[in-house]
């Protein structure tokens, strides 16, 4: 077992624990047990819990910017669909961080600040995507000023909170349903051209 994989294993075990317990209540002993190594060994890799939390969030932000970078890699509607898939995977993996957000805000303000920045970018991307669809003629022009800003917020809320609230309701976090719910926000605004493209390229994959 080389260093990299042990470190990776520790981080993955921490994510599992954070998903079901408060970040504040997880102790190093638990992380060591979950990883299957001794506390001493754990301390060799991370000097304290802060270091682990920081590393977990470092990974989290890394993955998030990975998703952000897939914005408009192709002009088609499927581009958003692919991004949604990635968001879904992300929010399923890191269920905890939304729940512990306020704890994080108190104890790790730097992390909170970066997270807010990510959110800002995510919102902007959704908003600009709508503009782009309007320019391409697959989305109706904004019916009244501010409508698409509101729509952006609704889509965002769905993408970010859908997984945790499904977990809360003890329902499956199925990807198709997730995408269905998110697309349902946009679909009423499609032009006929947009509708046919949607029916052709996206709908076959989200109607199971």
């Amino acid at each position: 077992m080389n260093n990299l994989t042990t470190k990776q294993k520790i981080l993955e075990a921490s994510i599992r624990l954070f998903n079901w317990n408060d970040v504040a209540n997880v102790r190093l002993q638990q992380i060591a047990d979950e990883t299957g190594i001794s506390v001493g060994n754990l301390a060799y890799h991370f000097k304290n819990k802060e270091a682990i939390v920081s590393a977990v969030y470092e990974n989290l932000f890394e993955e998030f910017s990975q998703i952000l970078s897939t914005y408009l890699t192709s002009p088609k509607l499927t581009d958003f669909d692919v991004q949604m898939e990635q968001y879904h995977r992300f929010f399923s993996k890191y269920k905890f961080y939304l729940i512990d957000l306020f704890e994080i805000e108190r104890s790790y303000p730097v992390i909170m600040e970066r997270w807010r920045e990510c959110i800002g970018k995510m919102l902007l991307q959704i908003r600009k995507r709508l503009d782009y669809y309007v320019n391409r003629g697959i989305l109706q022009p904004e019916p009244a000023p501010g409508v698409y800003d509101t729509l952006t917020n609704s889509i965002w809320t769905t993408i970010v909170f859908w997984v945790p609230q499904q977990v809360l309701k003890d329902k499956p976090v199925d990807e198709t349903v997730f995408k269905q719910t998110a697309w349902a926000h946009i679909s009423p605004y499609f032009t006929p051209k947009g509708l046919s493209e949607f029916a052709l390229e996206v709908q076959p994959f989200i109607l199971s």
Binding site: L98, F102, W156, T157, F161, Q165, Q180, T181
Partner: peptide, 19 residues
Amino acid sequence: ILAKQFWLLADLWMYRQNV
């Protein structure tokens, strides 16, 4: 789905604001 969206947005309104 509309109904689900409605309660999702309504219930998480404050949460969203905070985030």
